[in-house]
């Protein structure tokens, strides 16, 4: 049964990796700055979930703290980027 669990953890990590890829595509492709910020937000949330699955896989609780930190930095980063866009000085 644990074999099944490790396979499904691998599958979940692949899916989450693809999800990060989608977010990265949005960061690279734009088309506008707000799309890139949205991509960044998605990438940070997905990276947080990926860290949680790594935590389950290795059985170490340390990954939880990393996930918490990534989630917090993602939130702060998104709000900071959005506030930067709000200043209106970076209109493309």
């Amino acid at each position: 049964m644990s074999q099944l669990l490790s396979y499904s953890l691998l599958a979940a990590q692949l899916l989450l990796g693809l999800a990060i890829g989608c977010g990265a595509f949005r960061i690279l492709a734009g088309p506008r700055a707000q799309d890139r910020v949205l991509g960044f937000d998605t990438v940070s949330v997905n990276a947080m979930l990926l860290l949680l699955t790594f935590g389950i896989r290795s059985g170490e609780a340390l990954y939880f703290e990393a996930a918490l930190a990534v989630a917090l930095f993602g939130f702060v980063g998104t709000v900071a980027f959005a506030k930067f866009l709000l200043r209106g000085e970076v209109i493309e």
Partner: peptide
């Protein structure tokens, strides 16, 4: 885990 990853992938 699989459910959560698939939902996240659908969203992305």
């Amino acid at each position: 885990v699989l459910l959560g990853a698939s939902v996240t992938l659908v969203g992305s």
